[in-house]
């Protein structure tokens, strides 16, 4: 049994079958990549996992509980954090406040009217946030305005916001999309570092083969809404079915 079990998921948008009978099992403490050409249904699948979309049929079980029909904040409280394609942060808040919000979410749940307490007195939360920022090497920027960070730093900050919740599963939606090679390599190093320091399960949706083969332990190839194959990176490399999916025709 994996920590995330997707069984027979179908999703149709009008005449388009976006997902057709998708089965996926992500094992605990692995980095699992989901790859596939444009329009393969990667993003649709991810949106079904985080509560943004509800599949027409099938089941999505996380940690033994169904996530279907739950709101994004409930799914996050179950232990799934999400990194977006373009970093989603609180641009009007300072860097440390960005990290403190998920700390509060983890400690106090989805709602608490803590209107009379003072942020400055929440020493535990501040310490926790500072430790996290030190982990991603952003402690010196903690009082900076988050909106003024460089794109690479925004990505680091978003990772810090997700990791500080100590999620059981971290979902990454094309974390290097639109990045220059140097930034991509930095992101890969950051993810490797994160993985080395703690037990964490990651599911990465990715386009860039370089990223996938540097990080993933298991790979699922999605094409036209259906998983083609699931295997280790070594076996996926050069697999004829994969080449067919990406290049259209099998090159003999």
């Amino acid at each position: 049994m994996g920590i995330l079990e997707v069984k027979g998921v179908n999703k149709r948008f009008g005449g388009l079958q976006a997902l057709g009978n998708v089965n996926l099992s992500v094992q605990e403490n692995t980095v699992h990549a989901i790859i596939g050409p444009n329009g393969a249904g990667k993003s649709t699948l991810l949106n079904c996992l985080v509560g943004k979309l509800i599949p027409d049929s099938g089941s999505v079980m996380f940690d033994g509980k169904s996530v279907l029909g739950r709101k994004p904040y409930e799914i996050n409280q179950m232990g799934i954090s999400r990194v977006f394609q373009t970093p989603e942060i609180f641009a009007d808040l300072s860097v440390i406040e960005n990290v403190m919000i998920p700390c509060f979410a983890r400690r106090d749940g989805s709602f608490r009217l803590h209107a009379i307490e003072t942020v400055e007195r929440e020493k535990d939360i501040i310490e926790q946030a500072e430790r996290m920022l030190a982990d991603v090497k952003m402690l010196d920027k903690r009082h900076a305005h988050a909106g003024s960070l460089s794109r690479g730093d925004k990505r680091r900050l978003e990772m810090a916001m997700c990791l500080v919740q100590e999620p059981k599963l971290l979902l990454l939606d094309e974390p290097t999309a639109g990045m220059a090679r140097a930034d991509t390599n930095n992101t890969i190093d950051l993810l490797k570092e994160i993985k080395a320091k703690r037990d964490i399960t990651m599911a990465i949706i990715e386009h860039d083969m370089h990223v996938v083969f540097s990080l993933a332990e298991r790979i699922t190839v999605l094409a036209q809404g259906t998983p083609l194959i699931e295997d280790t990176p070594d076996n996926i490399k050069g697999h004829p079915k994969v080449r067919e999916a990406y290049l259209g025709e099998a090159q003999v």
Binding site: Y73, N76, F90, I101, V119
Partner: peptide
């Protein structure tokens, strides 16, 4: 003044800044 300086006030500013991120951060 107390509300502005409280975690509640900070969460309200987070709503103004990026409500989607807040919902994916486990807050309703």
């Amino acid at each position: 003044l107390r509300i502005f300086r409280s975690p509640f006030g900070m969460t309200l500013r987070a709503i103004k800044s990026n409500q989607q991120r807040l919902n994916y951060t486990g807050m309703n």
